[in-house]
């Protein structure tokens, strides 16, 4: 990325720390919703099917099956409305964009969980 664009991004967006997640991971996005002057937090849990963009324009898409219907939501990563992101499971996938998940449902839509070596077991 251009150094000037990077500089402006660092100046204009509030710094946030997120877990390092990628496509195939199962995340919960805690999103602030303002309803009638009141603010509450709504959680959206699903699989990340893509991450795209750099800097302030970066975004990611989460897909979940709700009542048998596939629902996708795209969040801007640096949106002030994102309260927090929790990483529930990291998945083992071979692609960066999981658009093939849209044609799948049920058993075939499952993503295999990545097993991590635990430090203490060594």
């Amino acid at each position: 990325m251009n150094a000037a664009v990077q500089f402006v991004h660092e100046q204009m967006t509030t710094k946030k720390t997120f877990p390092n997640f990628k496509a195939g991971d199962n995340v919960s996005v805690n999103y602030k919703i303002i309803e009638g002057g009141k603010e509450r937090i709504q959680s959206f849990r699903g699989d990340v099917i893509k991450r795209q963009g750099t800097g302030a324009t970066a975004s990611f898409t989460v897909r979940k099956i709700s009542d048998g219907v596939g629902v996708e939501r795209t969040f801007p990563l640096y949106s002030p409305n994102i309260d927090s992101i929790e990483l529930n499971k990291s998945g083992r996938v071979r692609r960066a964009k999981l658009y093939f998940q849209r044609e799948r449902f049920g058993k075939s839509a499952r993503i295999k969980e990545k097993r991590m070596a635990v430090e203490s077991a060594k």
């Binding site: 251009n2 664009v5 204009m12 967006t13 800097g55």
Partner: peptide, 14 residues
Amino acid sequence: KIGMTSVFSSDGKQ
């Protein structure tokens, strides 16, 4: 012209 980016307002508008 250097390039483009986006900024967020406090209510989340990009």
